[in-house]
């Protein structure tokens, strides 16, 4: 096998995957220390999906993500400290601490959440794409959701509407095989997500979600099709979540062996191996990368720790845009 991309780009993909993983490992640690509360859904194991996919978008494009969105937000460019502060619930967080882990928002980067109702982001993404179409804008809207969402009516309704109106929306299904604890084949008579999409008139293909380069390539191709005015496109990234669904999950629904098998396909380990094989990664490179990430995350934690709480007097601020209510 030979190097398919330039070295700088390759190292950047690895760095981004590592950055997400280390950020979340730190978040899990802080959770057990009681610094972070509520639900915390980790992306660990699925990093190749976000990192590969996000290479296909510009800052003009809109993003709608799920409650497992730490990776997408980091990649979008929201500073790690702002995101960590949000996990803490601090006022310097990306939603003033009001959303926490499940509800990252960043208007300046067209990051529309952080949606924690499974399937609930899809209609919103369709509307964002409709607004673009009506305004003659050529940008696209990318909407992440999990395999659990394909069971929701909103999935089918949204795909149909986007196809019917030929809207520039990219549906990105992160199929980690479990809707919380229920395996796809245990809740869907037709477990092939691409067939469901095709039945709604949406072009679709499945991609190995553990292979960052494959994800990038497929997503760029799909994005190009969407930008070309050909209507929506769905990608099903076949991936796996290494950690529990959230922090309260005894994982009774899957075997340790299954998890171990998937860990053999850890997207970071595999890509690291490829890069070494291609002679574009040395142990020194990796150590330097890890050190820089560790420093960034330490600074992010310090920023979260130092951040203020939103004053209780502001509790009802921004229920409405105008303050007379």
């Amino acid at each position: 096998m030979s190097l398919e991309i330039d070295r700088t780009k390759a190292l950047d993909l690895l760095r981004q995957m590592l950055r997400i993983r280390r950020f979340e490992e730190k978040a899990a640690e802080l959770y057990s220390l009681g610094k972070i509360r509520g639900f915390l859904h980790l992306y660990i194991g699925e990093e190749a999906v976000a990192v590969g996919a996000m290479q296909a978008f510009t800052q003009e494009d809109a993003l709608v993500a799920t409650y497992r969105e730490h990776g997408q937000a980091l990649l979008r460019g929201t500073p790690a400290g702002t995101l960590m502060a949000e996990l803490y619930g601090k006022a310097n967080g990306c939603a003033r601490g009001r959303g926490g882990s499940m509800h990252f928002f960043d208007a300046s980067r067209r990051f529309y959440g952080g949606m924690a109702i499974v399937g609930g982001g899809l209609p919103v993404a369709v509307g964002l794409a409709l607004a673009d179409k009506l305004q003659g804008k050529t940008r696209l809207t990318a909407c992440f959701f999990g395999d659990g969402a394909v069971a929701e009516g909103e999935f089918h309704e949204s795909l149909n509407l986007a196809a019917l109106w030929k809207l520039p929306v990219l549906f990105l299904c992160e199929n980690n095989r479990y809707a919380m604890g229920t395996a796809l084949a245990r809740h869907q008579a037709q477990p092939d997500v691409t067939l469901k999409a095709q039945a709604e008139g949406v072009a679709a293909e499945a991609v190995d979600g553990m292979d960052v380069l494959a994800v990038e390539k497929a997503t760029k191709r799909a994005a190009e099709s969407v930008r070309g005015g050909n209507g929506p496109y769905l990608l099903e990234y076949r991936t796996y979540r290494f950690r529990a669904h959230s922090m309260y999950d005894a994982e009774l629904y899957r075997t340790k062996e299954e998890v171990e098998q998937w860990k053999q396909r850890d997207p970071i380990v595999i890509f690291e191996g490829q890069l070494r094989e291609w002679k574009c990664l040395t142990s020194e490179d990796l150590a330097a990368m890890e050190a820089a990430i560790a420093a960034e995350i330490a600074a992010a934690v310090a920023e979260a720790e130092a951040g203020p709480w939103e004053p209780v007097e502001d509790l009802t601020k921004d229920v409405y845009t105008s303050e007379q209510f």
């Binding site: 509307g127 964002l128 794409a129 409709l130 607004a131 909103e154 949204s158 109106w165």
Partner: peptide, 23 residues
């Protein structure tokens, strides 16, 4: 003036998205 399918959740949600998108 857009006729929609009988998909209340999708077209109300699309209204939310379109409002967020400047319409």
């Amino acid at each position: 003036i857009r006729d929609t399918p009988l998909s209340e959740s999708a077209f109300v949600g699309a209204g939310i998205g379109a409002a967020l998108g400047g319409m």
